[in-house]
Design a protein around this nucleic acid. Structure first.
Lengths: 382, 382
DNA sequence: CTGAAAGCGCTTACAG
DNA sequence: CTGAAAGCGCTTACAG
């Protein structure tokens, strides 16, 4: 009885008076052990409180039952200059995705091994590889590796990304940015009649960000007289602090604000509304603001946020399922999976507080429909 | 050149023309390999894209560089009946703690292996043990295991809890609930002069919940004429949906609401305020509401939330550091670590929207000071 | 400085 | 049905 030391399978075997092979078999339900053998093993296991070591098991069966997840986030250096220092650390969208991954993973008895990298770190190769070698497969939020790194790494371990596009060796899951943004653009341009817009971006190299911006720009270009500001001075990084910073600079520089600010995601919109409020600018009275994602808190903001809902947890769960099929050497159903998005109209775009997604210019709703291919969602605000 | 298969250390050794021991040494910086050996190994490593397998390494060095983290959360069964279905999945407080753990873990090249268990699951033993055997140590949010399970498990792997108290074999890190709640109680009872209060609880078995409730009850008992409702009808589970449910039931039952509702945490307060608003009850006009934690979104709510701030990320980071010292077989500095909390006055308690923490009954501020031992924080609202 | 060998704790053909 | 043995991919005394 060597106490206080973690028992191994040898200890169990000795106590039960059988071989380690038998212990392993009853524990894993292989073959059909004799009832007596079974009982003695189980008894010994209970007595010793034995549980097999994960590393040893993983080495033996070549499966760790671990999925590596890499999240991109700003470091405090990017955010600690203002009140959003903490806010920036609350990754509502990524955390919800991870929850989706976890739910799916649990049903296969996988756990999530999580690591974050700074969004500006363009050499996360080493750390990512290390994470990969502790896992059976990798899910990457956004574009954390460049194409060559992806290619190298994907040769060693299955990879699913949550952004952009599949590569010959990796799969991808993403929300329908195009449809969602088209619906949003139509709502702002046609239903509300806004003509001067701005796009407040996320990470510059993020595929989601690029696509949302491009689709918005295209929609604006179709409307005579409509303009879109989206230069480097409108560059954020998906967090409230980034959005707030842009607005403060615009105001400090004396630049006129557009009628509507389309933000790359909800968290950016939060910062934008906050900065506008600081300066006594009414939302949506003077400037309309919209987000993307529909994270849960968006409906609880002082001015509830109009946004494009993504099926966040489903995206995570789907990513895991695709990864799992790759780990199991099955061909995934598809290597590029698109999930639907939905426009959610609340207050911040100028729709009525309590009401339905009222168009301020309802006569243009036909052209709105012609621009948008996604169904306009109902009002989910408080 | 067997392509598309993950190279092992043998492949590297063969390619470099050295033994696997040499490869291991140059990769781990052991001894002083000859420059030529070193170069050839490094070259082979680069050529093959070799990285050592985590399980094999862990088995050999008896260290996985993984910290297991177990989070308690409601399942959708508890929440999907209302609008907070998603909200409940956004674990702002636990996620922020995990971020703190991660920051500290990265500096030791540990990663976080995360799993959540349903808060009502009183036999998470099996799954927890499995997680433990994939890790070098465990950090448990709240009380997820009973005392016997803790005792058994802590014999196999170091455990740090984030709630309650240290046991003879485990360490604990927690915020100063008592001081925080005393300050809050004094503020409500003395500064604002509220006399009928209610405590809307978290998980019934959560040590934090119990302590907050007890301290509040004691403070109320010291004020003549003050009453506290906190029976089973005021039982939530730390999430918005739980808080909202309680309020709706109270109203449906025709029960009069108290002057102030002290919630077990911020997320509960969010649900409470939302439910009150549904019924046209003004916060803080008709009912004051307070939270606990100061999660980032609390300042962005329609009615910004008065709460007790906990050093959330520091708690996570501290938990890791303590765990790490246990993993390294050093005696931890202390097995029970208390971190300070701070009262943050915003709007929801009845303080003025923009202003300082104005006392509505400023003449009682002396008795407030006598009741509270924590410094009252400034206004951090928008 | 370097290599051959043992060992980390499991699982699983392979015999019996 | 069960046991002895090989093997998973590393690291690290131990010799040389």
């Amino acid at each position: 009885m060597d106490s206080s030391v973690t028992p191994t399978i040898y200890d169990v075997a000795r106590l039960a008076g059988v071989s380690i092979a038998s212990v392993s078999r009853v524990l894993n339900g292989r073959r059909n052990p004799r009832p007596e053998t079974r009982d003695r093993v189980l008894q010994a296991v209970a007595e010793l409180g034995f549980a097999p070591d994960g590393a040893a098991r993983a080495l033996s069966v070549r499966l760790k039952e671990v999925v590596g997840v890499i999240v991109r986030r700003p470091s405090s250096a990017d955010t600690d200059e203002d009140m959003f220092a903490d806010e920036a650390e609350s990754l509502q969208y990524p955390d919800l995705i991870n929850r989706g991954i976890e739910v799916a993973a649990q049903s296969r008895s996988f756990d999530l091994l999580i690591r974050s990298v700074h969004f500006n770190d363009h050499d996360p190769g080493g750390r990512t590889v290390a994470l990969a070698r502790k896992s059976d497969g990798l899910i990457l939020h956004d574009r954390v590796l460049d194409e060559e790194q992806m290619d190298r790494l994907s040769r060693q371990v299955p990879i699913v990304t949550l952004a952009g596009f599949a590569t010959p060796t990796t799969a991808n899951v993403h929300g329908d940015n195009a449809a969602g943004m088209r619906a949003l653009a139509a709502h702002l341009l046609c239903d509300h009649g806004y003509r001067s817009l701005a796009y407040l971006g996320g990470y510059a190299d993020s595929p989601d960000n690029i696509e949302r911006c491009d689709v918005l720009a295209a929609a604006v270009a179709e409307v005579p007289g409509a303009t879109l500001a989206n230069g480097p001075e409108w560059q954020g990084y998906y967090f409230a602090s980034g959005g707030a910073k842009v607005i403060r600079r615009q105001i400090a520089a004396g630049c006129p604000l557009p009628e509507a600010i389309v933000c790359a995601n909800d968290q950016t919109a939060l910062g934008v509304m906050s900065a506008l409020r600081e300066h006594g600018i009414a939302v949506p009275g003077q400037v309309a603001v919209t987000g993307f994602d529909d994270i849960p808190m968006s409906r609880h903001l002082r001015t509830s946020l109009t946004t494009v809902r993504q099926p966040i947890r489903e995206m995570g769960a789907t990513a895991f399922e695709v990864l799992y099929s790759m780990i199991s050497h099955q061909q995934p159903l598809s290597r590029d999976i698109l999930l639907p998005t939905q426009l959610i109209c609340r207050e911040s775009c100028g729709c009525r507080p309590a009401g339905a997604p009222a168009s301020t210019t309802s006569t243009t709703s036909i052209s709105a429909a012609s621009l948008a291919s996604t169904t306009s969602g109902g009002n989910a605000g408080l």
